[in-house]
Design a protein around this nucleic acid. Sequence first.
RNA 1: GGAGGAGUAGCUCAGUCGGUUAGAGCGCCGCCCUGUCACGGCGGAGGUCGCGGGUUCGAGCCCCGUCUUCUCCGCCA
Length: 605
Amino acid sequence: MRADWQRTIGCGDVRAEHVGTIITVNGWANSVRDHGQVVFVDLRDRTGVVQIVCDPARNPEAAAAFEDAKKVRNEYALSITAKVVKRQDGMENPLLATGAIELEAVTFRILNTAKTLPFQLDQDASSTNEELRLKYRYLDLRRPEMYRKMKLRHDIVRAVREYFYANDFLEIETPVLTKSSPEGARDYLVPYRLEPGLFYALPQAPQQFKQLLMVGGIDRYFQIAKCFRDESQRADRQPEFTQVDLEMGFATQEDVLSLVEGLMIEVVTKFSGETGKHVSGNPFPRFTYDEALARYGTDKPDIRFELELVDCAQIFASTEFGVFRQVIDNGGQVKCIRYPNGARIPRREMDELVNLARETGAKGMSYVLVEDDGVGFRGTLAKFVTDVERPLIIEATGAQAGDLIGFIADKPSVVAKVLDRIRRFIGTKLNLIDTSKMAYCWVTDFPVFEEDETSGGLTFAHNPFAMPREEHLGWFETDPLAMRAQCYDLVCNGSESASGAVRIHIPEIQLEVFRKMGLSPEQIEQRFGHMLEAFRFGAPPHAGIAPGLDRLVMLLCDEDNIREVIAFPKMGGGYDPLMDAPSTVEDTQLAELGLTVTVKEEAAE
RNA sequence: GGAGGAGUAGCUCAGUCGGUUAGAGCGCCGCCCUGUCACGGCGGAGGUCGCGGGUUCGAGCCCCGUCUUCUCCGCCA
């Protein structure tokens, strides 16, 4: 049963066809314009804005409404029953969807008053202090642009669910209170009251549970899952975030890739009218990890623009330029990138470029500028380039008159990192990026192991549960660093969009990986005994992946900050200014958990 | 942990070479106004210049420290 003050229609939904009817709308006073003998109130709800007019001269029986309207301030919660009338000629407002009509108030109810807001909703959100916006997020959310983002996120989640339902997946929840696994990111811990000293951890991902669901015969599982990682934040990272987690039994890498390609194409295409974004490339291009690093210097290449890296080791095989000579002789790399029209950039930008290289780890950057004839070189490196090398460089890079070619010589990891950074710098500087594109690509075959810089031993490069390529299974002892895994990242516009793998389902192989990582039999048993045990009961081959939801929504909303697409996000240190969390707890709560708190001492001088 | 940017009225910002009483727009309060729609007019209130110390005759401005915040690096299976 509708109370008499409850809405019969949304503010933004009133149209000329309603003229003559009596309606009731609910919402907030968006603005009040008091002209003395007539008052206009713009009423806003999530559907839009409509103009209410209170004019006792035209509507003598609504004198009370007029008096109330004069009391209204911005953001009062109102209920107005009114007659829909066509606006007088010349009074229409083409800026409003409801601009052809207005509402002549009959009954005017102030449901609640409002203090003056700490910031104005009619100004651009991006120009308001973000801490303030988050502290009063419930007010910030009243902005139409925030509603639009929340609505789009909802619609995307809905489309994702429908896609998985249609593909015969079961949506299953997994625990949030679970076991710490010390590898990977830092865990959030939850003390266990019944036995002080024991802890749950919040899951960094439902990884182990979804594999166990495959052992359990669920076969096709998905979940919109919260994940928790206690690591430093970035513009595109939150301590708690959402993944579209999925796993498939008796499945191959191809099954997962084609399923996720279908998902992304469907979701992006479904909303492209609204977002202006479209998928570029179908099927998605694929690179092995080694190939991506060679061509782009990164395992998450932004392929919205070209400018690939060029390996010059062959060209400079017999160079006498000391820097290159030394790097090549020590097994390093010499690679370069073309900067179209870079020979014409001002000195300041040139310095910026070299500084960028230094900041990223290079000792410096050599470069040549291609002369107007398209053949000759100028620049720091020009005098060291022989007549034989010069045309080879031009051919390999495709350089043209007026281009700059920047060279980095160092160990492979530095060369890749620096040139990736420079490549993205050039892409941005030259405006090569088409922001309407969702340029997806797959990066596959990551190394199984990499050297752990802190311990000196081996650690996993991608995921400890990723199945090595079958032809590499014999390399555990001989050349573990050369082993490649059956795993894959989905990359979109230069950021990681999803990460997954064909999982190890043979206990002996999983054991071998753990051993190689330097885990003792006791550690393996304590941390992963349950997984290995499960694999011994006929675990099926299985594979899965987990696309990040927040970043997908962020890209589709054209936002560069993940907090913009989360209703109640946390700030830099994981602080939530709305709830004032984290915060202290009562001593009795600590005592019950057997915890004592050691306050951080200031370093005394 | 490191680098850089920011912090001045409720909000967004300006503030010259260190010099009188720190300003603007919006918002807020009061009065006026019958057609506005970011209404308009008149009047008004509102400041520990993040905090602490220092230099100086004098500090919003210079120096040191500190806090908060943003971006990036490290970190993020």
